[in-house]
Design a protein around this nucleic acid. Structure first.
Lengths: 257, 257
DNA sequence: CGGTCCATTGACATCTTTCAAGGCTTGTGG
DNA sequence: CCACAAGCCTTGAAAGATGTCAATGGACCG
């Protein structure tokens, strides 16, 4: 079955796909026109971005790093509603009223900010911008749908596996021990994203470590030792591979999921 | 405090807001241009709508009734990802790959269908269409964010209360016993939307009935006897009121939430 | 009238959270 | 360089919430 050769290929393919090229197809196509009209923000870890720019609606385009969209409803704890990766577009009118919404940078990153009106105007005049916005939105909505399914149907372990896969695909780099990546969030953040509690999350991570799926690593970093085993634990693995990893990686893992 | 007068006002206002006028502001503004280019579909209860129109991407605009977007991932049960109400727009490229997605009509309704390419073309040439699509999308994303928070943070009862409020605001009609509305879904559907199991849902409903919050009613219908008590059980009540009910209703309930 | 489907409800199993204790990492100041 | 403090992470035990299974009952349909 030439399994040795295949394995070698997969590793190479993964390393390339995961690190050297833009992981999100849309990112490559961000129209230059946007840059000209946007303010470039360099964000630090945990920095929050004001949603309203002196009263007006605002649009954000993620260029590097990861943003979190947090929502706190009255008498309820915080939910991290979505993770925004490079290429993603966020508009301040995407958040519900009467909710405390926060856009925060998880790690260091770069964000382009502009007035919503300016973006609209740009979109109206430049078809490339329109196409880009459409595509970015479709990708985000698809991911949001997966996230909803994750929260609604998955158990603890499946949720954690799903997040690890998503982060590995987005920000992972192939290294001797497996795919390594930053965890730009602390336990509480991850728990709030996955709708579970930090203690439970910690237990799951310990279990995954014990099973050899992920490795021990420093604070704020993680290493996936056995990507297939991880993928086997998330019903969303195939979908995430296609969305985040592109076609390069998907065939390599198609069989194992 | 003139509370009698106020109560009277509230009831009248609610009845009007909930029934006689379009509940979604965006709906009123659906550009006529869309109608000319769309196929009008009359949907029956449980009818599914094919996502691809002979190979091409498709767009749907809900005019009447409620649609459900269902997602089934491998080795996982079905999740109803979103409810689509009149005015909402759905594009077939909003669903993730490698997932079995279904768009289904909950009750009888009317849907406009057109090719995505045709809609894009229309949006490019008609600013009113663009504005409408933007607004519809923003509203849907805001609701989706609430739904994520609902699934991630709310307990059973809060989730059920949230759905009841949403349906009451969208499709409810003020009647002697309270606000009555169709439940276009069976228990399993509701459970799949809220990420819980039908038995649990049944228990919650019984508890709400016992508490006098909702009334007994025929199959497929529900009556909210005490809207305030219901609103008090959902952290998302205020947000839903503003999104779905418009400003007419919100002040009336502001104090009780 | 009987059959079928769906809703309800109890008993029990399982999963998840809560609470509390302890350990590890990081940063600070001597 | 070490000691100490603060914050975060880990882990056990117990409680609570939710899911599962099975029996029952009620509504609709032929």
């Amino acid at each position: 079955m030439a399994s040795d050769a295949k394995t070698g290929d997969q590793v190479r393919t993964q390393a390339r796909g995961l690190w050297d090229t833009p992981t999100v197809p849309a990112l490559a196509a961000v129209p230059a026109a946007l840059h000209a009209h946007a303010t470039v923000l360099r964000t630090r870890r945990r920095q929050t971005l004001a949603l309203a720019l002196d009263g007006g609606e605002t649009a954000f385009i993620v260029r590097a790093g990861v943003l979190t969209l947090q929502l706190t409803l009255p008498d309820s704890s915080r939910q991290i509603v979505a993770l925004l990766f490079p290429g993603d577009v966020f508009r301040s009118n995407f958040v519900p009223p009467h909710a405390e919404a926060t856009l925060a940078s998880a790690g260091a990153g770069e964000v382009w900010r502009m007035r919503l009106a300016a973006l609209d105007k740009l979109a109206a005049s430049d078809p490339a911008v329109t196409r880009y916005l459409d595509q970015a939105l479709a990708s985000q909505l698809a991911r949001q749908a997966l996230h909803v399914a994750t929260l609604g149907q998955f158990n603890c372990e499946q949720r954690v596996a799903t997040l690890l896969i998503e982060l590995a695909l987005r920000t992972g780099v192939s290294s001797p021990g497996g795919v390594a990546f930053e965890l730009p969030f602390n336990r509480k953040d991850i728990a709030d994203y996955l709708g579970l509690n930090p203690d439970t999350l910690s237990r799951i991570m310990s279990r995954l470590k014990a099973a050899g799926v992920i490795g021990h690593s420093e604070r704020n970093r993680a290493v996936v030792r056995d990507f297939r085993a991880l993928a086997a634990r998330s019903p969303a693995a195939r979908s995430l591979l296609e969305i985040s990893g592109g076609d390069r990686i998907e065939p390599a893992l198609g069989r194992s999921v």
